[in-house]
Amino acid sequence: MKTKDFSGIINNGPLPSPQDVEVPCDIGDLLNDYVESTESMLAELEQAALAYEADQGCEENSAAVRRILHKIKGESSMVGIDQMCELCHQAEFAFEELPKHKRPDMLLRFKDWTWAAMHSMTD
């Protein structure tokens, strides 16, 4: 599994192509479960990011964001999609480090990139 650099998520820098995410060959029927679960969490993340933008610093929205990123990371890790795991890790770091007003854009970029990756996996 190649290592990809996802540090661009914190500074709006370049990210690897979502079409290049590597999926373990033995993932089997778990892939559909994974994509379905991730897409559902991305929808939740989008809502949480928009709510966060509207009411910056709200602890409830922050907790929702952390929970979703952590859950996507955990599931990616369990099915062996390491690049997604790394992206989530970088996004978690970025969420803590970025100024509050920059966090929603980072989250929406994460959501768009991951959404594209999910579509690529199921094509």
């Binding site: 778990l30 479960d33 994974y34 679960s37 859950k71 955990g74 599931e75 369990m78 099915v79």
Partner: peptide, 11 residues
């Protein structure tokens, strides 16, 4: 685990 996918994978 709150993830059904993770529970399935662990199993």
């Amino acid at each position: 685990d709150d993830s059904s996918l993770t529970r399935k994978r662990i199993r």
